[in-house]
Each structure stands twice: as C-alpha cells, then as structure tokens.
C-alpha cells in the first residue's frame, strides 16, 4: 500500500511536506517487514538532522531497525503516543503511526521518490 502525495526513500521512509514542515514515518512495506512493533526510540526535540541521519530506532521481536531522515531539518514535534502504543505504526503507518515532524532547512526533494516511483521500486525488490 502506497499513498499519493508523499515522498519516499529506498529505505522505506515517507515524508509529507506541508509548508516548511515535513511529517515523517515508515511505509506499509517497512512495517510489514518488521512485524509486530514493540518499541520506538524517538528523536529528541530540536535535534538537527542531515538527510540520511538516524532519526529513530524501531524494534520488533525480530529486528532493531534504524529509520533515516529523508530530509534535513530540526525536529519540531514527536509522536508521543508511540511510547505506549508503538503498534500504531503497524495499524496506521501513514496516519496515527507518524514518527516526528521536521522543520525543513532545504525544500529540495529531488533525491526522493514520488508515489508512482516508489511503487515501481517496490516491484523491483
């Protein structure tokens, strides 16, 4: 399941860009691969991130998986619900399972895929 109007990475993160803010999460493909998510290590507020810096760690009984930042910016909000309900990522990865918001420093998205490109990419895996 891929959603329109989002940007995607090869590591299966998504970004929803609205104004100068980007909401970040992991894709349906990623949450399926991880299985039942039991723990999320969220970034700290105001943390400065470069593109591809580690933004969060998501853990299931199967694996601990780093989440990389699709964009550069400053962490402006984190999804507090994930500390007690990490399974929101399994249930609703593009909605209630968002991880954090970034105040983006560069609006450049040329390194990211759109929904159609990501779908093609998934087929190639």
């Amino acid at each position: 399941m891929v959603q329109e109007n989002l940007f995607y990475t090869k590591d299966h993160e998504w970004a929803r860009i609205e104004g100068g803010l980007a909401t970040i999460g992991i894709t349906d493909y990623a949450q399926h691969s991880l299985g039942e998510i039991t723990f999320v290590e969220s970034p700290s507020l105001k943390k400065q991130l470069n593109t591809h810096d580690t933004l969060a760690v998501i853990e299931s009984s199967k694996a601990a998986s780093d989440v990389y930042s699709p964009l550069a910016g400053e962490v402006s909000e984190i999804n507090e619900s994930l500390s007690s309900e990490p399974e929101l990522i399994n249930k609703d990865c593009y909605g209630q399972g968002w991880i954090c918001k970034l105040k983006i420093s560069k609006p450049d998205t040329t390194h990211l895929m759109n929904a159609k490109q990501y779908e093609e990419y998934l087929k190639s895996l």
Binding site: E59, S61, S83, E85, P86, E87
Partner: peptide
C-alpha cells in the same frame, strides 16, 4: 517484562 513500549532484549 515485555510488550508495548519496552525495548526488546537481544
């Protein structure tokens, strides 16, 4: 203890 919100032991 395990379950939601507890980092899995490895």
């Amino acid at each position: 203890d395990g379950g939601k919100g507890i980092r899995p032991i490895r």
